[in-house]
Simulated scan of single mutants.
Amino acid sequence: MKYMKLKAYMAEFIGAFALVLVGSTAAVLNLELSSIALAFGLILMAMIYAVGSTSGGHFNPAVSFAMALTKRLSWKDFGMYSFFQLLGSLIAVLCLVPFVGDLSNLGANQIFGDFGGQTGILILLLGVLVEVIGTFLFVFVILRVTKEPNLKSLAGLIIGLTLAALIYFTGPLTNASLNPVRSIFSGLFQGGKALEQVWIFIVGPMIGAFLAAVAAPYFDQVPEEKA
Rank of each mutant, 00 (worst) to 15 (best):
Leu19Gly: 10
Gly79Ser: 02
Asn175Leu: 02
Phe112Ser: 07
Leu166Trp: 08
Gly41Asn: 14
Ser24Gly: 11
Gly101Thr: 10
Val22His: 04
Glu32Ser: 03
Val97Glu: 03
Gly160Ile: 11
Met67Trp: 05
Tyr168Glu: 03
Phe78Glu: 00
Thr162Pro: 12
Ile142Gly: 00
Ser82Thr: 15
Asn60Trp: 13
Phe136Asp: 05
Lys76Thr: 08
Ala215Pro: 08
Asn175Thr: 09
Tyr9Cys: 04
Met4Gln: 07
Gly56Lys: 01
Glu32Ile: 03
Phe13Gln: 01
Leu103Ala: 09
Met10Arg: 04
Pro180Trp: 13
Ala176Asp: 02
Met45Arg: 09
Val97Trp: 02
Gly79Phe: 06
Gly204Pro: 13
Thr170Asn: 09
Leu42Asp: 00
Arg182Glu: 14
Met67Leu: 15
Val222Glu: 00
Tyr81Ala: 01
Ser89Ala: 14
Gly101Cys: 01
His58Phe: 15
Asn30Thr: 06
Phe40Thr: 07
Ile48Tyr: 00
Gly156Cys: 10
Leu163Asn: 08
Phe83His: 05
Leu178Arg: 09
Ala164Leu: 11
Leu211Gly: 11
Phe138Gly: 00
Thr162Val: 12
Leu166Met: 12
Gly192Val: 03
Thr170Ser: 12
Gly41Cys: 12
Leu211Ser: 09
Leu166Arg: 06
Ile111Phe: 03
Thr119Tyr: 07
Tyr168Asn: 04
Gly79Asp: 04
Ser89Phe: 09
Phe219Ser: 14
Phe219Met: 10
Lys76His: 00
Leu44His: 12
Val51Asn: 10
Ile158Leu: 15
Leu31Asn: 02
Leu69Asn: 10
Ala216Lys: 08
Gly79Trp: 04
Leu195Ile: 06
Val141Leu: 11
Leu166Ser: 10
Ala18Pro: 06
Val214Asp: 05
Ser35Phe: 02
Gly204Asp: 08
Lys147Ser: 14
Ser104Cys: 05
Lys76Ile: 09
Thr170Leu: 07
Leu106Trp: 12
Ser177Lys: 00
Ala176Lys: 05
Leu19Cys: 09
Ile142Asp: 01
Ser89Ile: 11
Val141Phe: 02
Val198Met: 10
Ser24Thr: 14
Asn105Met: 00
Ala66Phe: 11
Val145Gly: 01
Lys193Cys: 00
